[in-house]
């Protein structure tokens, strides 16, 4: 895909690397969702809660990738990137939720 105009001039490709890091995290969440489903017969229905949280988080990353890449390449171009507090806090919140729900499933199930 060729851009008629390059979105940014950063030779270190920081926006691309950051976008790929989000993509890896999304894939990790998809993998983790699959692992949760795999142990459905052992842990029972409550594990579906963990599956729901991790796949929702993966979907949320997928749907916001374009916005984040746009913001960071524009930011590199303008030498000013606003810290993405929202994405960071939501991602951490989802992971903490997974841990809490997981402890519940292990202790109760």
């Amino acid at each position: 895909m060729a851009y008629s105009q390059r979105p940014h001039g950063d030779p270190g490709l920081q926006p691309e690397r950051t976008s790929l890091a989000w993509g890896r995290t999304m894939m990790a969440l998809v993998t983790v969702s699959a692992i949760f489903l795999r142990w459905l017969p052992v842990h029972g229905l409550p594990i579906l809660l963990l599956f729901a949280v991790s796949s929702a988080a993966a979907l949320a990353i997928y749907l916001t990738q374009r916005r984040r890449y746009g913001a960071s390449s524009r930011g590199i171009h303008e030498e000013r990137v606003d810290a993405d507090v929202r994405s960071v806090l939501w991602t951490a919140f989802a992971a903490v939720m997974l841990g809490g729900l997981g402890i519940g499933v292990v202790l109760v199930g």
């Binding site: 920081q14 690397r17 890091a21 995290t25 930011g75």
Partner: peptide
């Protein structure tokens, strides 16, 4: 802005 993005990537590595 490069430092802000690097900080974000480090956070994501911890999350993974």
């Amino acid at each position: 802005p490069r430092f802000t993005l690097a900080n974000e990537r480090t956070f994501l590595a911890w999350i993974r």
